[in-house]
Amino acid sequence: MEIKSAALALAALGNEQRLRIFRLLVVQGPSGLAAGEIADAVDAGPTAASFHLKELERAGLIRSTRDGRYIRYAVHVEGMRRLLGYLTEDCCKGHPELCGGTIKRTKVTCVGKGG
C-alpha cells in the first residue's frame, strides 16, 4: 500500500460516523447491509449515510453491490488487510512478535489469510 492510499483510508476512518459504519460492516462480514439498514443502525439520515458510505468506498475500505432496488455495502476485506498490514509491517523493526499479541494476531488474521 502506498502512503497516499493509507492516508486516504485513515482520513475516512477519522470521522466518527464513518468509523461506526466501518465497524458495523466489519461485524457483518461479506454479506454486508443495505444502505438504509446502515443508516438506521448508526442513527444517520439517508443523505449523511450515503455521503459517508461513498467516502469509505472511495478509500477502498468498503464495496457496494446492487441487490434488486437496494445497494448493499460490505467491508472490503482486502482493503482492510492492506491498511492493517501497512500500519504494522515495520513494527519492532520487522519483528511483530516483539510488539505483543495484538500485532501478532493482526498479522496472522489479516495478512496470513489469503493476503
Rank of each mutant, 00 (worst) to 15 (best):
S50K: 11
I62M: 08
G94H: 11
A44C: 15
G85V: 05
A59H: 07
V26F: 03
G79K: 02
K104Y: 03
C91H: 09
S5K: 13
A12Q: 07
H52V: 05
K113C: 07
E37G: 15
S50Y: 06
I21M: 14
D43E: 14
L13Y: 04
E37K: 12
V108N: 08
M1C: 06
L56E: 02
E89I: 07
A35I: 01
L19G: 05
L83H: 01
G29T: 01
A7W: 05
I71D: 09
A59K: 03
Y73V: 02
K4L: 11
G68S: 05
M1T: 12
V108K: 13
E2F: 03
L8T: 13
R82T: 10
Y73S: 01
V27D: 14
E57K: 06
D40F: 08
S31A: 15
G115E: 13
K113T: 07
E37C: 03
A34C: 08
S50N: 13
D43G: 10
G79W: 04
S31N: 11
V42I: 09
G100F: 08
A6T: 03
G79A: 08
Q17L: 06
E57P: 01
A11C: 09
R66Q: 15
V26Q: 04
E16G: 11
R66T: 14
I71Q: 12
A12I: 08
G101V: 15
P30I: 02
K54Y: 00
P46N: 09
L33I: 04
K93V: 07
C110K: 00
T109R: 15
I62S: 02
T47P: 02
F22D: 00
C99H: 08
A12F: 00
P96S: 10
L56H: 01
E2H: 07
H76C: 08
L10E: 06
E16P: 15
L84D: 02
T88R: 04
A11H: 06
V111P: 00
D40L: 11
L56F: 03
R66D: 14
C91S: 15
L8W: 05
D40S: 15
K107H: 14
G68V: 03
C99E: 13
H95N: 14
V26R: 03
L53K: 01
L87N: 09
C92A: 15
A6Q: 01
R18P: 01
H52C: 13
S5C: 00
G36K: 13
K107N: 11
T102H: 08
E57R: 07
G101T: 15
L25Y: 05
T88W: 00
V77N: 00
R23W: 06
T109C: 05
D67F: 10
L25R: 00
